[in-house]
């Protein structure tokens, strides 16, 4: 997977995960390049009571600040955004986030499918979708939507996931472009940077 293989110009990367995904993020976030040339959006299934401790935890492992999204917050390249607990995270064409407190999807709020589909709608081929460890099928339909819109889709290598079910579903159902271990995921996030050079 060399730079020419991820040749499309990446404007946004969206990472989704559930059980076992935080430990992966804690490994790949410290390896992120700086400055980031794309927007990084993280959507995780999380306990409602965890509040913003998760953003602090992830920030502590990254040189970049992780913003826990507030409604109508603008999406800026170079920033990392985390979906807040108990809301679906959507993206408007005007490049601001919209939150949505409607019914759970796949027993989840935030739902990965909801955010992935919305991001695909806005970023089309300039989007990269990554699905990490988890015990639920959420995310697979969303990855399909990203692919339909021309984006690149990737699943964490199930053998490296604490809970393999979620990436496995995506591999079986969505026809992912790459299956990567944690080290390769970190490398990809670096390769996606600075496509202009």
């Amino acid at each position: 997977m060399e730079k020419s293989n991820v040749s499309h110009s990446c404007k946004a990367v969206i990472i989704g995960g559930s059980a076992g995904s935080i430990e992966v993020l804690l490994k790949i976030l410290p390896a992120l390049p700086e400055p980031l040339t794309y927007t990084l959006i993280i959507v995780l299934h999380r306990k409602h009571t965890a509040e913003s401790a998760l953003a602090d935890l992830l920030t502590s492992k990254s040189r970049l600040v992780i913003h826990e999204v507030e409604d109508k917050e603008p999406l800026l390249p170079g920033n990392i955004y985390l979906a807040p607990a108990d809301y679906h995270l959507l993206i408007e064409h005007s490049l601001v986030f919209s939150l949505d407190a409607s019914e759970k999807v796949n027993y989840s709020r935030p739902s990965l499918d909801v955010s992935f589909e919305s991001a695909a709608d806005v970023f089309g081929p300039s989007l990269v979708g990554i699905l990490l460890s988890g015990a639920n099928a959420d995310g697979t339909l969303g990855l399909k939507a990203i692919k339909r819109a021309g984006g690149l889709i990737i699943a964490q290598k199930p053998e490296t996931a604490r809970v393999a079910y979620m990436p496995q579903q995506a591999i079986q159902e969505a026809g992912v472009d790459y299956v990567l271990d944690i080290f390769e995921l970190a490398r990809l996030l670096n390769l996606l940077n600075n496509q202009g050079d």
């Binding site: 679906h88 959507l90 993206i91 408007e92 919209s98 949505d100 409607s102 909801v114 709608d121 806005v122």
Partner: peptide, 9 residues
């Protein structure tokens, strides 16, 4: 109304 959410609804 916020378009992304409305479209989903």
């Amino acid at each position: 109304y916020a378009r992304a959410s409305l479209k989903r609804r």
